[in-house]
């Protein structure tokens, strides 16, 4: 029964066009960013907003390039997940969904499972696009790609994991906010403005910097082991497993809220 619910949720995702459009845009965007980043970071004259001269090891450079999807592309798996519930409410398919599976907890878990799996796909494709494009540029301009190093591949693997977690976080958020327009606005506003600004502002104080590390975007970067923001010295990050735990806490808390609010309501 649970497996059937998972298959059903997975089919819901892949039988519409949204997922592959977002996936294609993500792949193209990440390839572009990785290529541009690989080239510019290798020029060695990057400066932060504060004007401090950066001293980056080549190792840091490639890690930032290969995991750029975690820094800049997490909005894609987040959005796919966030729309899982709102699409059901918008098109009223929540009715047949709950008729097929009256246990609302099971529906929620199946959605998390299926979106987590699709999140892995987004993570793999987004990261791969960054590795291929970024690695290609680095190789072309004669820089070390570090693709022979185990640490690099560990970062790449954790990047995939972090992006999958973002899809889970999106699904959990969607269980709380079922209005499609509202959830899209919140996702874009938070990821593009609120968190980046908050991280910059909070990093000005030491306690703020510690708080900023618990923001979801920072936690996601921590999972992949340091990337763009931290490489440029803006904020400190948690360790990878702490980042993982923080993201999971967001998922669990939001899912629990969704379960006792949205999924407790009458479906009329």
């Amino acid at each position: 029964m649970t497996r059937a619910a998972l298959v059903a949720e997975y089919r819901k995702l892949v039988t519409t066009r949204l997922w592959w459009i977002l996936l294609a845009v993500m792949a193209a965007y990440m390839a572009l960013m990785a290529a541009g980043l690989g080239w510019s970071l290798s020029q060695g004259d990057v400066s932060t907003g504060t004007g401090d001269e950066l001293v980056l090891t080549p190792d840091d450079v490639v890690r930032s390039v290969y995991t750029v999807a975690v820094s800049l592309g997490y909005v894609f798996p987040l959005l796919v997940g966030a729309l899982a519930f709102s699409a059901e409410f918008r098109h009223k398919t929540i009715t047949p969904t709950l008729l097929a599976e009256p246990s609302r907890t099971r529906v929620l878990l199946a959605k998390l499972g299926a979106n987590g799996a699709v999140g892995l796909l987004f993570g793999a494709v987004g990261t791969l696009a960054a590795v291929v494009a970024g690695g290609g540029v680095l190789a072309a301009i004669g820089e070390e790609t570090f693709l022979g190093s185990a640490a690099t591949w560990r970062s790449i693997g954790l990047s995939v994991l972090a992006l999958a977690l973002w899809a889970l976080l999106g699904t959990a958020l969607g269980s709380v906010m079922t209005n499609q327009v509202a959830v899209i606005v919140v996702v874009l506003a938070f990821t593009q403005f609120v968190e980046p600004i908050a991280r910059v502002v909070l990093s000005m104080t030491s306690w703020g910097s510690r708080v900023a590390a618990f923001l979801p975007g920072a936690a996601g970067e921590a999972v992949s082991g340091g990337s763009l923001y931290s490489a440029t010295g803006m904020t400190s990050l948690l360790s990878w497993w702490q980042g993982l735990l923080v993201l999971l806490v967001y998922v669990v808390v939001l899912s629990a809220i969704g379960r006792v609010t949205t999924l407790r309501r009458d479906i009329t």
Binding site: A5, T15, H91, K92, T93, T95, L99, A100
Partner: peptide
């Protein structure tokens, strides 16, 4: 129980067949 509550419970982007295939595993 087979129940049809409203004629609009479909995702417009899904084909008729895919709509049914979505629910087939749970049924």
């Amino acid at each position: 129980v087979g129940a049809a509550l409203e004629a609009a419970s479909f995702h417009p982007g899904r084909t008729a067949r895919d709509h049914l295939r979505v629910y087939a595993p749970q049924v």
